[in-house]
Simulated scan of single mutants.
Amino acid sequence: MIEANHIGVRKSGRWILRKAGVQVRAGELVALIGANGAGKSTLLKAVAGEITPDEGAVSINSKILADWPAAGLAKVRAVLSQSVQLPFSMPVIDLVEMGRYPYQGQEPGGRTREIARLCLKQVGLSGYDDRDIRTLSGGEQQRAQLARVLAQVHRESESGERFLLLDEPTASQDIAQKQQLLSLLRKLANEAGLGILTILHDLNLAMQYADRVVLLRGGHLLKSGPPETVLTPEGIAQGFGLKARVVRTPGEALPHILTCPTAVDLFQNEETAIP
């Protein structure tokens, strides 16, 4: 399990994250949501070990993050940044194979490429092996990067807890691709036992696919729990300054969120520093 407790991060002498936290269990998909500037990416980076929090601690499988050796950590968690721009050309298959770097010298010949192709198939990019990554659309590049992190945590045996940390994986995807991608993540959580922490902006996708939702506002943890208990009209108003209705359509298992034209303090001029 990933545990991040009482996380605080200061920047330029100001708190941008304070007393925030999240837990992610194996087989669980957790959606991290909140308005722009709420601290989602900062919390994800702290969990990933990309930044060291000024307060609090992060542990993976009961071991403090700083105590993990780099190679061991790479085998249990993989990170997908919001946007990864390569400054040079590279075949797509080579990019995906980079995810297998922690296993270098531990796999039989040809197995690394087999795993890379399997992961490309999972993200809908079969046959893209020899394409130059820089010629792909923004959405295709993001899916190729997702294939890379899937390759990183792929194992022949499903034993051992593994985690994906994803910063807006649906960015640049069309409406159908967003559904397919979240369906894939849901399947990986259910069938492969991956623990997944992902930043999402689409509240209906969070409602549909997440086991739990963590709502941040102004660098603080506002609410955490099952989607239907967090994504209420009150929760959406508090977290986003937006009026919304949560409605159930006959025959549908889950409710839908309908945002209203009238905002509640949407552009309020509040101080962004955290006390």
Rank of each mutant, 00 (worst) to 15 (best):
R186E: 08
V214G: 03
V9Y: 03
E3V: 13
N204I: 09
L150H: 00
E161V: 01
I33C: 15
A116K: 00
A206L: 09
Y209Q: 05
N204E: 11
D265T: 05
Q85I: 12
D167L: 12
Y128D: 05
S183D: 14
E140D: 07
R162N: 04
P69T: 10
E50Q: 15
L215V: 02
E234R: 13
K40Q: 10
S89I: 02
I51M: 10
T249V: 15
P102K: 03
I64H: 14
L136E: 10
E156S: 03
A31H: 12
D129P: 07
R134P: 01
L136V: 11
V153G: 00
T229L: 06
R245M: 12
L181C: 10
I199V: 15
A273H: 10
E158I: 03
E50Y: 14
T272Y: 04
V76F: 01
Q23R: 15
I115A: 00
N190W: 04
I93Q: 01
E156A: 03
H220S: 13
S157P: 02
R186H: 14
A237T: 12
A253L: 13
T272H: 13
M98R: 13
I16P: 06
E3D: 11
A206H: 04
R117E: 13
F163S: 06
G34P: 12
L182Q: 03
R162M: 03
Q177C: 02
R100P: 00
N204C: 10
E140L: 07
G21K: 11
G139A: 07
D54S: 13
D67M: 04
G21T: 11
E271F: 06
A20Y: 04
E156K: 00
T259K: 02
G241L: 05
A46V: 10
L185M: 15
I175T: 12
I133M: 14
L205A: 14
R100G: 00
Q208D: 14
G193F: 00
I60P: 00
G251Y: 07
G105K: 01
C260D: 14
K75M: 06
I274A: 07
G127I: 09
G241C: 06
C119N: 04
P255I: 04
P227S: 09
P108G: 02
L32C: 12
L266I: 08
P227F: 03
G56Y: 05
A74S: 15
K187T: 13
P250N: 09
Y209C: 04
G105L: 01
V30G: 10
I16M: 07
L216T: 06
G13L: 09
P108N: 05
K63A: 13
